[in-house]
Nucleic acid binder design. Sequence first.
DNA 1: GATGAATGAGTGTTCATTCAT
DNA 2: CATGAATGAACACTCATTCAT
Lengths: 199, 199, 199, 199
Amino acid sequence: MYRKDIPEQRKVQLINAAFETIGEVGLASVTMSQVATQAGLSTGIVSHYFGDKEGLLNATMRKILRDLYDAVATCRAQAEDTPRAQLQAIIAGNFHASQITPKAMRTWLDFWAASMHRPALRRLQRVNDHRLYTHICCQFLRVLPQNAARRSARGLAAMIDGLWLRGSLSGDHFDSAQACQIAEDYVDNILALQPHRAH
Amino acid sequence: MYRKDIPEQRKVQLINAAFETIGEVGLASVTMSQVATQAGLSTGIVSHYFGDKEGLLNATMRKILRDLYDAVATCRAQAEDTPRAQLQAIIAGNFHASQITPKAMRTWLDFWAASMHRPALRRLQRVNDHRLYTHICCQFLRVLPQNAARRSARGLAAMIDGLWLRGSLSGDHFDSAQACQIAEDYVDNILALQPHRAH
Amino acid sequence: MYRKDIPEQRKVQLINAAFETIGEVGLASVTMSQVATQAGLSTGIVSHYFGDKEGLLNATMRKILRDLYDAVATCRAQAEDTPRAQLQAIIAGNFHASQITPKAMRTWLDFWAASMHRPALRRLQRVNDHRLYTHICCQFLRVLPQNAARRSARGLAAMIDGLWLRGSLSGDHFDSAQACQIAEDYVDNILALQPHRAH
Amino acid sequence: MYRKDIPEQRKVQLINAAFETIGEVGLASVTMSQVATQAGLSTGIVSHYFGDKEGLLNATMRKILRDLYDAVATCRAQAEDTPRAQLQAIIAGNFHASQITPKAMRTWLDFWAASMHRPALRRLQRVNDHRLYTHICCQFLRVLPQNAARRSARGLAAMIDGLWLRGSLSGDHFDSAQACQIAEDYVDNILALQPHRAH
DNA sequence: GATGAATGAGTGTTCATTCAT
DNA sequence: CATGAATGAACACTCATTCAT
């Protein structure tokens, strides 16, 4: 059991190194040697554990998605179980401190663009996208009819991604509070216009 | 005048070829030979006209931004000069048929990601981003106080980019009408909640 | 006759441009476009007049050798016809102002090295080398027995080329007076040791 | 210790291959593939060990200079410690069998010409040139006043380089004995004219 | 005669991948 | 298990040369 965990540790080590390195130099210019060096390991080890470069990138993207999922899940667990609170938690989770560092945002965007051309990444990306939509939609369905809920969910998901996308361009500081405020206003406007079916 | 236009023709030819090829294989894997072949020209010609690969990519991105600008400008010119109509025109322009083909959307996203790591592209991207925000903000300012106008402009810009970003993932069909609907609802909700300073 | 001289003018123009450009960037990195630009002409013209690059380089080397020959011939014509005076004139001609500019020295050396690998240039170089030796030898033969004259001629020719070679390395300033002094001392020592057969 | 020496072996292997190949085709036309093939290795390995072409050329020039230094040092070690014997040893070392093969001479000259345009090579060349001068000057200073010693040192250094330079042009055979004779005569003439301060 | 747009072979260099140790 | 030396295909880019105008 002790020895069996070494491989797993190596993988984690390499995935973290990949995340760091991609954040620094970009997905387009990252090399396997850079990742190995960052991890303090030898060049051959990457192929040894992940087969090839694509394997490492897939694993890295999975880690990133999981981190986002965890951030959102933590926020939601701490929030009340009302639609408004849950939606605010989802928003807050997506703009969680761990998700809005320049490095994280650049990496995110790099993977998003890469997923256009790499089927394996695309599948991961789609699952994730759909999850955000579904979670939002579930909450809206508690207070809106289906069509309105779906439209609102699409709108909120787009707004979250759009705020993040535009923020990624600025470079150093992402105004998380402002982003949350704008997204929450959107939610509040929608809820305010509804007949009082909920809470 | 006849001879002097040949270079310009070649440049356009190559930029179009670059756009096509990037749309097919992605910015990360496009090669200069591929572009040259697509343009029906020899490999050396690209460096001859654009200096190097970066020069061609910059020119290609400029073309893409100009195309979007033209689409938006055309829509706005055909709309009435009320805030609501102009905002709808901006939305419609951003989801214009020429902008939502899978190829165009993939290319857009590729360039966005690349602009994180290439200063020249970043500058272009920033100018463009700011322009969308400014145009929207101008219209909101006609009916909203400054702070509200700014917040709404950020929200709408984010929503437009987010709808487009999420749509780029789907692959084949982008539901332009639905996207417009969601963005217009956002605008209408904002305008509806305002004291009746405008129309 | 007027029109027939235009081609000749063009050739001279191009050869001068080649000399200038090689002096600046070196024989190894000079391109035909650079030469054409320096001459204020089009790129195609070089092949038109000289066939190919090698043709231009051969012509350029010929010009350089002729310039040196002229410098030496001028000096010799102005000197008395004694062995010592003639040898001093040969020395002076080789270190003539036109021959010891950094540009001229670099170009010289570049052509010398190139002549190791290009038969056409090698032939030119050999003719020139032999001419320096012969001229010197002729003068020594007036005062020395054949063997001694030959040895001395080889020595003086080597010293002249060596002074020039070592001077070419310094970069900006070649101490012409010092070089002449050293070479003349060599001549004087040889003549001083001889039985007084001459003057 | 066994594994650590492999890189060093490869470097030596590649430097030798570079020397051989440059001797055959010239510095101007040598390609990295040619060197790699000559060394029996793959093309990528050169960049792996020397960074780029310039790195390999610098290393190759260093090797050449070191070889000359060793040849001179060996000759001097075997000679008596009198000025005349030491100067003869320096002359002999410069015309040592290993230094006067056509290949070696061509390569030398190629590097000398290249050093005009490449700062890194120029530095090496200057150090080497100065060393020859200094060694000679030290010996002359034992029997001549400072000014005369310096002038004589410049003369002898020039003569050595000039003999070698002119010899490089001949192609196949360099008459080492004749070259030594001429240079030694120069030394003897200088020493003979001196008041009898030395041996 | 003269142009300069176009070619395409050839270069240095990078890097994922392999495999003997 | 792990290493890192070695590979070689692929790339961007250069430039002498050609040829339609």
